[in-house]
Computed example of a mutant assay.
Amino acid sequence: MFPLYDENPTRVTPYFTYGLIGMNVLVFLHELSLSTAQLNQFFNQYAVIPQELTTNFSSEWTTLFTSQFLHGGWWHLISNMVFLWVFGNNIEERLGHLKYLLFYLGCGALAALCQWFIGMSSTIPSLGASGAISGVLGAYIIRFPHARVTTLVFLGFFVTTINIPALVLIGIFFLQNVISGLASLQAAANMSVETGGVAYWAHIGGFVFGMILSPLFGLFRRD
């Protein structure tokens, strides 16, 4: 399932949502211009490396924010930006432009810390906007639980669109991450070598913090 758009029109232009999408795309285009060695160095400098954050937080804390604009491939970028495009505009309208930006970056940083907490000695770079966008999804599900989202569905070779309640779509996203996150913990417990993969706990952490923080930022303020 792939969201296309929701049913809630916005009355203001979501400048920061557009700006965040633009910045992510520009950074990814820069990544494409780098050689493999240069790209690895770029990730090592700007992505969150848990072991480095553990041993030298004072100089590495900025990666909690810079890592949010890095992506590991086209699909990683596109899927994140589509979710931000579909769900970010309504949250930006409700919070206001500046509060929305602070909320987005804050959720992303807290999400990265959740992933760091799971594996403080890991040397695998953690990167992507998924944690921050999960925060947006957490805010959306409590502010617009009855909204419906037009979603692209792939049924083998057949592709169609259906309207799905946001509560169901985002709920499936959250449950998938909880199940995968618990599985990743079990796998790590049964293995003597470090394993990489999707930062499920960053997704879960971002989602939960989005639900907690968004009301404090004014998600339910009256017009």
Rank of each mutant, 00 (worst) to 15 (best):
S134G: 09
N190W: 11
L152P: 11
I170Y: 11
Y200W: 14
N190Y: 03
T195P: 05
R222H: 08
A129V: 12
F16Q: 01
C114I: 01
I21A: 08
A111Q: 09
I118G: 05
T36M: 04
M1D: 06
G205L: 13
E92P: 03
T161E: 07
N177V: 14
G210C: 07
V208F: 12
I124C: 04
L113F: 12
F65D: 01
G138N: 14
W74V: 15
S126G: 13
G135V: 07
L4C: 04
C107G: 12
E93H: 05
T54E: 08
M1T: 12
H97N: 09
G106V: 06
G197P: 06
A202F: 08
R143T: 12
N89K: 15
A199V: 13
Y200T: 14
V12E: 07
A139P: 04
R11Y: 15
S58P: 02
G128E: 07
E60G: 04
L169P: 06
Q45P: 02
P145V: 02
A112S: 12
L20T: 10
L98G: 02
G106C: 10
T150N: 10
K99H: 07
V198I: 15
L102P: 01
E92I: 01
A166L: 11
S67K: 00
M191E: 12
R94V: 03
S180D: 13
P9V: 06
L70W: 02
P14D: 01
I141K: 05
Q68W: 03
L84A: 02
W116D: 05
I133K: 07
G197T: 05
R222S: 10
A139I: 08
S33C: 00
N163F: 09
V136N: 05
F28D: 05
M81A: 04
L185F: 09
G196I: 06
F69S: 04
L4W: 07
T66I: 06
M23H: 02
N56Y: 03
S130M: 01
I21E: 09
G22N: 06
T195W: 06
L110M: 10
N89F: 09
T161N: 03
Q176T: 15
I142K: 02
L155Q: 15
A183G: 09
A129K: 03
G72P: 00
F207R: 06
T63D: 01
W74R: 05
N163D: 13
T17H: 01
G205F: 13
H76T: 06
T151G: 13
A199H: 15
Y104C: 02
S121N: 12
G22I: 07
A47V: 00
Y5V: 04
P3E: 13
Y15E: 05
F42D: 02
R11H: 14
L127Y: 12
I204T: 14
A112T: 00
M120D: 03
M1W: 10
